[in-house]
């Protein structure tokens, strides 16, 4: 499993190497039956001075990917850990959202740096719809390795937008028990989206909902409810 990673997730973190360093003591314990491949090389690696995060190129992990199994394992632990500390489904979703938010702020900065730092006049997104489009394609590609499936605008409420993913990667190995059917673990993704929108200056409340359809039982809708200030700001541009 560990030797043949599924190249499905790409990594937004630059710390894939150093985290392997940090975890290396586990390779010598017997609790995890990980192959004890580089016990010799890890000891030599620790001998030198610790690498500094400021020395690493931000593009080093641009195309690196993390195995789905490793992520599924980590995320299942995240959900279990969170579930032990909450009283209800709403609380659990809120916590997952907060965790995703921490990722989103980083995703936004790193993604923009990778896209814009080479250009002569780096640009920010200041209109809402292009920003939403870039979340649908760029952010999804950076985090999940594929763009989301659709963007929809609510007919009844003009401040509501939806991003739809037919098969959310983080829920691939999660089956929610019937008594918790309200729960959508994609709240984590919603947190990422919320952080990106917040960072770009479009404060919104973002939630995740299960909306299964024929053929796509795991279909998830990320619902974005914009704050009033965003709509007012957009009005200024129209005139």
């Amino acid at each position: 499993m560990a030797q043949q990673p599924h190249p499905r997730f790409s990594v937004m973190s630059t710390s894939s190497l150093s985290s392997a360093d940090a975890l290396s003591p586990a390779t010598s314990t017997t609790r995890f039956s990980l192959p004890s491949v580089n016990t010799a090389s890890t000891s030599t690696r620790h001998a030198g001075p610790r690498p500094n995060i400021f020395d690493r190129s931000l593009n080093k992990t641009r195309t690196t990917e993390v195995s789905t199994s490793a992520f599924a394992f980590l995320f299942s632990e995240v959900v279990q850990y969170t579930q032990k500390r909450v009283s209800g489904i709403n609380d659990l979703e809120r916590r997952l959202n907060t965790l995703g938010y921490r990722i989103g702020t980083r995703v936004l900065e790193l993604m923009a740096w990778r896209a814009e730092s080479g250009s002569k006049a780096p640009k920010r997104e200041i209109r809402f719809l292009p920003a939403l489009m870039s979340i649908h394609t760029q952010v999804w590609k950076a985090v999940f390795g594929k763009p989301a499936d659709a963007i929809e605008k609510s007919v009844s409420n003009e401040d509501e937008y939806m991003i739809i993913d037919n098969e959310p990667a983080i829920e691939r190995y999660i089956s929610v028990p019937r008594d918790m059917s309200q729960l959508s673990c994609s709240s984590f993704t919603a947190g990422i989206v919320e952080a990106v929108l917040d960072g770009l200056g479009f404060p919104a409340r973002v939630t995740a909902h299960n909306t299964p359809v024929q053929g796509h039982p795991a279909r998830t809708t990320i619902l974005i409810k914009l704050e009033k200030s965003v709509l007012e700001r957009e009005e200024v541009f129209k005139t």
């Binding site: 900065e109 640009k123 920010r124 997104e125 770009l200």
Partner: peptide
């Protein structure tokens, strides 16, 4: 709000001081 550029050169002036700014995507 109106300008999407990250680097805003000499946006403000105060006597001999010039103020340049840079806005990251995360604000």
């Amino acid at each position: 709000r109106k300008d999407g550029a990250m680097y805003l050169k000499s946006v403000d002036k105060f006597n001999e001081w010039m103020v340049s700014a840079f806005i990251t995507p995360g604000n």
